[in-house]
Write a protein that binds this DNA or RNA. Structure first.
Lengths: 223, 223
DNA sequence: CGGTATCCCCGTCGATACTG
DNA sequence: CAGTATCGACGGGGATACCG
């Protein structure tokens, strides 16, 4: 673990745990509900598996995470101390939203966006039992321009290959524009009006689609 | 600055600034009101001056700190973005207080404790124009056992050498005990009763002394 | 007081491969 | 799916000296 600051200040004692790269982002993933090793990886794609493993051990040793096994099933769940970090993640995210400036192109990632959106679907806002949404990112690198969200009654799957189902509705978007919508920096109606995002499909779906995805980031920008 | 996480998440963008060692502790010092280079050093004694300089430059570049000069007078002041970090520091400190466990011996530091106490003196609680408090830490390393706080109408000085003034009141304490009081983990009356802290002097001073120092840590533990 | 320069080591992290 | 093993490069940051 990061070495001691040799200070009695609680901020220092806390930062001994969190001043290492990736640690607090891993906590964020856990707070957002990921529990399995490979799900955590999906939320942290640029983190090596060995480092993820190390961090999970460290957080376990620190009493923030508990490794829970049930047969083959292995989950990492937050302890009470870990759950209390939600306030830290939230405050930090609010600050980041407000003061962190415009995203760099390198911060845009369709895979990550899809992963984050997929876990924040509000089924009750969707007027069909099952829908398939295709996303087309006009400006993404070749090979990650097309994505499908297959939304059924009890799960949401992300695909980067055509799953074969009929597409119910299609979203054609500038990657930056949709990311900014997701971050709460832009509104759906404005993006649709300006044409950076286009929704094609039956009017019932076109109209409601913006409400299908409930961003955990959008409300917190505070600004 | 710490390299990019390549994530659009505001938490990630924020942690690109704060996942490097010492950065958030420096912010804490600024939030607590230190503005000058050598005052910042006193609050971060184990940070090398060159690293402090680097961090100040980084925070300036990030729009969190502004370097303000007035003749020879140089101060580092928080920008609005920096002031907004107070919420982050506070939340993190609250978490640290609650979940960080018992302090290690290495976290105890009389110099740091004196420095922190000296800047949180409530003059209005002191029934004299001027007092000199001597602190004797029974278990501190030789050479840092005796400290003096010289409290006048308009300033508070910390000395590690006898300043020569008559001592108004003397506090003999276990370093850990006084640190825990300062952190809000122990109460003055309990420490006095158990004898880990002893106050000697006129009754007026003995009685009121615990109220002279208002810990910014104590109220926030939330536990 | 308010910093910069230098030097070098060690630990972190990234990449990749591989196992049960 | 759930991780561990290995390895090398890089640079962060600790220590110290020094300058205006």
């Amino acid at each position: 673990m990061g070495s001691s600051y040799r200070q009695f200040c609680p901020v220092a004692k806390a930062m001994e745990l969190f001043d290492e790269r990736w640690t607090l982002l891993l906590v964020r993933e856990l707070v957002l509900g990921s529990e399995r090793f490979n799900d955590l990886r999906r939320g942290l794609p640029r983190m090596s598996p060995s480092l993820l493993s190390t961090r999970l051990h460290q957080l376990t040793a620190a009493g923030i995470v508990q490794r829970v096994t049930d047969g083959r099933d292995i989950r990492y769940v937050l302890t009470p101390a870990g759950r209390d970090l939600e306030a830290v993640v939230e405050t930090l995210g609010a600050w980041g939203s407000r003061w962190t400036g415009r995203l760099g192109d390198e911060d845009l990632d369709p895979k990550l966006l899809m992963w984050d959106m997929h876990r924040n679907v509000d089924r009750s806002a969707i007027p069909l039992e099952q829908v398939v949404v295709r996303f087309a990112f006009t400006d993404a690198p070749l090979g990650s321009r097309s994505w499908w969200l297959v939304i059924t009654a009890d799960e949401v799957d992300v695909c980067d290959l055509d799953p074969g189902f009929d597409v119910s509705v299609e979203v054609t978007a500038d990657l930056r524009a949709l990311t900014e919508i997701w971050r709460g920096e832009q509104r759906w109606p404005d993006a649709l009006r300006s044409g950076t995002v286009v929704i094609d499909g039956p009017v019932m779906l076109r109209r409601t689609l913006p409400g299908w995805f409930v961003s955990p980031l959008a409300a917190k920008s505070g600004g």
